[in-house]
Nucleic acid binder design. Structure first.
Lengths: 233, 233
DNA sequence: CCGATGCTTCGGCTATGATCGAAGTATGAA
DNA sequence: TTCATACTTCGATCATAGCCGAAGCATCGG
């Protein structure tokens, strides 16, 4: 019986969705920075920082500092093994997803995540951009040639984004929707532009409110081609 | 990334100490009743009932009803595998124990668990009984011949206990101490006797208060032979 | 049938922990 | 040196979930 609570302390760490996402993101053996893991987990930098401190303290992760960057990787293959065993069990038992979405509909609909659009609108935007051939890739997103024209027309200075150090395109897990929305420099620039053009009105907190003009513009720009009931999956 | 939150829902179930203890108790493939699992987990029947409902709903356990008894067992070997993988990881990473003990010193010292003595006093009693040769066994406790004489002298009608359906001796995990205390019919009878003789005063809630007379009697009856600083482990 | 035992459900309590805004520290590049 | 970027820490908020007493339902045995 002595093993009971010891198991519980490790499992409790894995039982938080943000931390689970962080660990899963590291399963391929890569080392990622705090910022990258925050995006992968779909939480702010400060929240991710706290989670990483816990995982580090529990020796599930190993940290390496490179200048200003802090890289984390799994502390060993047994961590990945536990994750895989859990995945297998979850699949066999038909585990449903933890309901950890935001508490109200406004946040769920559209909110700011770090500096880009999240929520239903954010997920819909990335999905549309993929289906319109503006962006391709699954985890490693890239702008297509068609996309470059589209975003330039939208008012984004892509050259300036590419001059910066930040990745331009990044899939960022949306924790209310459980699919990705668009992060990275492009995601940030799009949100900034939407605020500039009056599509989105910033309010107190994280809620992003689409204006009437914004709803129209969004649906026009990010309508999904051939969208009908057969796309329900 | 999709696996993240699915993992989290399973891990969150394992991350509670009572539930972890329940699952660990079932690792040898046996089926146990709700009462037995409540004792194994060191919580009340009603709390265990709630936990078991969750584990059942998550398909980690399988339930069978036999008359008034409800038996639970693990739903498959992959559950045990996850638990073992977690044990290995916990060992490698030096996981510390989840601090889930009672909130105050009185409960920690002596309290009622189901119907027997728990807390520091309860653990000390079982330890002493073992060292005095009154009770032997690790998981399956049994009263020795020496123990029969001791408990009869203490005022316990062992024959009556053995006539009942309830196991006489049962190791029950003490969740504040993380060692076992004595459950089963004997544990209950001892507590009942201690209350009868004025050693223990029952108060509101679960706190059990030893009287001055009780402290003396307890130390006399359950002193550990050869107890000194070298026993600190 | 009645009392005992096994178990479930309800309701109230409260400790816990994830979250983010704000502020601060550390590092790198111009 | 200054500004930008990466990250950490603090404090406040509040939703959540484990806990048990009380009550009720189901089953068993005399």
């Amino acid at each position: 019986m002595k093993e009971g609570p010891v198991i519980a302390s490790v499992a409790a760490l894995l039982g938080d969705p943000a931390r689970a996402n962080i660990l899963t993101a590291l399963m391929d053996g890569r080392a990622l920075t705090v910022s990258e893991l925050a995006e992968a987990a779909g939480v702010t930098l400060q929240t991710a920082s706290g989670h990483l401190a816990k995982l580090d303290a529990a020796n599930l992760l190993v940290a390496e500092k490179q200048g200003r960057h802090r890289y984390f990787r799994l502390s060993g293959p047994d961590v990945a093994q536990v994750l895989e065993a859990l995945m297998g069990l979850a699949q066999r038992t038909g585990a449903t997803r933890v309901r950890t979405g935001p508490k109200d509909a406004a946040l769920r609909s559209a909110r700011i995540c770090y500096d880009h659009l999240a929520g239903e609108r954010g997920v819909a935007m990335l999905k549309a951009a993929r289906q319109q051939g503006l962006i391709n890739g699954d985890k490693d997103l890239a702008i297509t040639t068609k996309g470059r024209a589209f975003f330039a027309d939208f008012g984004i200075d892509l050259a300036a984004l590419e001059k910066g150090r930040r990745p331009v395109c990044r899939a960022c897990l949306d924790w209310s929707e459980r699919h990705s929305h668009l992060g990275g420099a492009l995601g940030a620039a799009i949100l900034s532009r939407m605020i500039e053009t009056g599509w989105i009105r910033r309010e107190a907190g994280r809620v992003l409110t689409f204006t009437c003009e914004g709803v129209e513009g969004f649906e026009t720009a990010f309508a999904r081609p051939g969208e009908d009931a057969s796309q329900a999956a």
